[in-house]
Simulated assay, not measured.
Amino acid sequence: MTESTSAPRGAKLEVGQVAPPFTIATTEGEVTLAKLVEDAAKGVIVYFYPKAGTPGCTKEACDFRDNLNSLKGAGYTVIGISADKMASLEKFQAKQQLNFLLGSDPDHAIMTAWGVWGTKKNYGKTFLGIIRSTFVVGKDGRLEVVQYNVKATGHVARLRKTLGLD
Rank of each mutant, 00 (worst) to 15 (best):
A87T: 13
T2N: 14
L98Y: 01
R9T: 14
S6H: 11
H108F: 10
L102F: 07
C57Y: 05
M111G: 15
A34L: 09
R160I: 02
G124P: 01
V15E: 13
K59W: 00
L163H: 02
N99K: 08
H155M: 03
C57A: 11
Y148N: 05
N67Q: 15
A41T: 12
R160G: 10
R142E: 05
A61K: 12
A94F: 01
L13I: 05
T134G: 07
D63N: 14
E28S: 14
Y47M: 07
L101T: 02
V156N: 12
N99F: 01
T112N: 06
N67V: 08
A11P: 08
G141K: 06
L68M: 13
G73R: 08
T77C: 04
S4N: 11
M86E: 09
I81S: 06
Y49M: 02
V46E: 01
M111L: 12
G43S: 10
Q97N: 15
T54P: 00
F92S: 09
T126D: 08
E14I: 05
Y76K: 02
A7D: 10
T5S: 10
R158L: 02
A109S: 15
V37T: 13
P21D: 15
L159F: 05
I45Y: 06
V78E: 11
S88M: 01
I24T: 04
I45C: 08
A52M: 08
R142L: 05
K51S: 00
A40H: 13
M86L: 15
D66F: 09
M1Q: 13
L165T: 06
P50N: 04
D84M: 04
Y123L: 05
V136N: 11
E30M: 03
L102M: 10
I110S: 05
A25P: 02
R160T: 11
K120G: 00
S70F: 05
V136P: 10
L68F: 09
D39T: 14
L33N: 10
F48A: 11
D105N: 07
E14Q: 15
A25C: 02
F127E: 07
A19I: 08
L101D: 09
K125M: 08
D84W: 02
A7E: 13
T32G: 14
A152I: 00
A61C: 13
D107I: 03
D39K: 15
E38I: 06
Y49F: 12
T27K: 01
V150A: 03
R160F: 04
Y47A: 05
E3I: 12
